[in-house]
Simulated assay, not measured.
Amino acid sequence: MVTFNFKDSSNPPLADHYVKLTTSKTNSYQETGLRLSRQESKPDESEELPLIDLSGLASADEEERAKCASKIASASTEWGFFQVVNHGVSPKLLSQMRREQVKLFNESFSWKSTCRLLNNSYRWGTPTATSPEQFSWSEAFHMPLNKVSDPACYGEELSSMREVVMEYAEAMQRVAKLVAEVLITNLGQKMEAFEEQIRCDEQTCYLRMNRYPAASGSGGSPLISQERIIHGLVPHTDSDFLTILHQDQVGGLHLIKDSKWVAVKPVQNALIVNLGDLFQAWSNDLYKSVEHRVIANPNMERFSVAYFLCPSHDSVIGSCCNHPSVYKSFTFGEYRRKVQEDSRIFGRKVGLSRFLR
């Protein structure tokens, strides 16, 4: 059995839990009429996502603005993922956020798990996992935006982080709403009409700071082999409208493209945009919410920060298109409850297929 001394270590007890799952005889899947993805293979290849220069949206040239918007819509339809540059978030702010994040996660596990700071949002591993393929080798702080300005969330220990996180959250919110407006307009709907139906603001959106420790056991021995991969984040789709992600240069993000896992090449200071389940439903399957995952690195830790554009729980999600909808209408609250219920039963979400007509 792999063991750690956690008194002074910053690493959560991921290895202990992972090894227990590899030896557990618990049946990890119960019978269901719904298909659960079990694609656990290594990526077939490494690809660069569509790279879009967002400065085109502010061009004085109408043709340039239209061309940029078209690239965003095409990438959302064909990939469900793309990277953006010239997005208006300064490299200095990205670096400041990374420094604060690294400093936070370098604290001891015992402190992180008991400090109750950042809205008491510290999480690690996957409590509901019953098998290794359901287990995420990672730790995170997950804060609603309406808490990022609250001094009580930081205490004296994290006082230097507050202003950086506030500025970062505002910047990501601007990027998210800029991209969302392009996608809404492409569907033939005005942003004002969308915002009357769907409320996405500081009360509903989230910021998640992630750390993926090196996947190694005692003495630094790697737990990953040619036959085995360890998920930093298990395969999933996002349950929001869209996600804005800033990652470091370690790599490890993979997504499904043409029925294959492909590894995403990091681009310095770029932001990754991926569409969530709600935009797929809202667009009547025109936009794609694509399954993605993170593979833990055996030798290096990885950091990322994600901003999630989410609506209020009572917002009704239905197709904005005129032709018959693929999905039944549902509220975001109903969707979240079903995702949580499936995660408890199956160890992972089922998602939009629950709401097919």
Rank of each mutant, 00 (worst) to 15 (best):
P298F: 01
E334G: 09
N297I: 11
R337H: 12
Y287V: 06
A270T: 01
E301M: 05
N322G: 00
E291W: 05
S315A: 15
F308C: 06
V290N: 05
S343D: 09
F346W: 08
F308E: 02
V273L: 10
C321F: 02
P298H: 09
K288A: 00
A306T: 11
S304L: 11
A270N: 06
S329Q: 12
S283N: 04
D342K: 13
I345G: 01
N299L: 10
N322V: 03
P298I: 00
W282V: 01
A281M: 07
D314W: 07
E301V: 01
R348N: 00
V305F: 00
S283F: 08
H323L: 11
V305E: 03
S329C: 09
V316A: 08
V290L: 02
D314A: 09
G333I: 10
C320N: 02
L275Q: 12
Y287H: 02
A306F: 14
A296N: 13
D314L: 00
E291Y: 04
S343R: 14
S343I: 14
L271E: 08
R348V: 04
K338C: 06
N284R: 05
R336S: 14
L286I: 14
R348T: 07
V326N: 06
Q340V: 06
L271I: 12
I317M: 12
S304H: 08
I272L: 12
D314C: 06
V294R: 09
V339C: 04
R348I: 05
S319K: 11
V339F: 01
E301G: 04
G318L: 10
Q280D: 09
E291T: 05
H292Q: 11
R337K: 15
F346A: 13
I317T: 02
S289E: 11
D285P: 03
Q340W: 12
F330D: 04
E334D: 14
N274I: 02
S319A: 07
A281I: 07
D277N: 15
M300K: 03
V305Y: 01
N269W: 08
